[in-house]
């Protein structure tokens, strides 16, 4: 292999999935070259969702456990698979539960995801208008 193809190889090699994972999971010696702004925005949005709804991770976990109790009374579910998360898009914050039903033998229903979305809070987009009052 000549230097040219070497160079060519270097430029175009796509890292194998394994390599990719290794690179992403190795926490030591990471450089700060990626733009950190996205990280800040995403982390901040998550923190603010918890702040604004006054729902901590612990509260969410308590709710999750209670939801498991209630739903289990009516239908058999996979207790560990129930996910409860906060999601937001623009001005709305939603509490999203993803509840997986336990698979019964001979059950024809294969895709038995029951998704329930519950809006718990609406953040009003236009707050009080803020035009400077003229004196």
């Amino acid at each position: 292999m000549g230097w040219l193809s070497k160079l060519f190889n270097l430029d175009t090699t796509v890292p194998s999935p394994a390599e990719e994972t290794r690179r992403r999971t190795s926490s030591s010696g990471r450089s700060l070259d990626q733009s950190s702004k996205k990280d800040a925005c995403n982390r901040l949005k998550l923190v603010l969702m918890h702040d604004r709804t006054k729902l901590s991770s612990e509260t969410l976990e308590m709710m999750r456990e209670e939801l498991v109790e209630v739903i289990s009374r009516y239908v058999e579910i996979d207790r560990d698979a129930l996910e409860l998360n906060l999601e937001s898009d623009s001005n709305t914050i939603a509490l999203v539960a993803n509840i997986q039903l336990a698979r019964r033998e001979g059950d024809e229903l294969r895709k038995n995801d029951l998704k329930s979305k519950k809006q718990i809070m609406k953040k009003d987009g236009d707050k009080k208008t803020v035009t400077p009052a003229t004196s």
Partner: peptide, 11 residues
């Protein structure tokens, strides 16, 4: 902000 290393005004 230009190099995406800081949240910008719009963010």
């Amino acid at each position: 902000m230009k190099s995406n290393d800081m949240m910008d005004i719009d963010d």
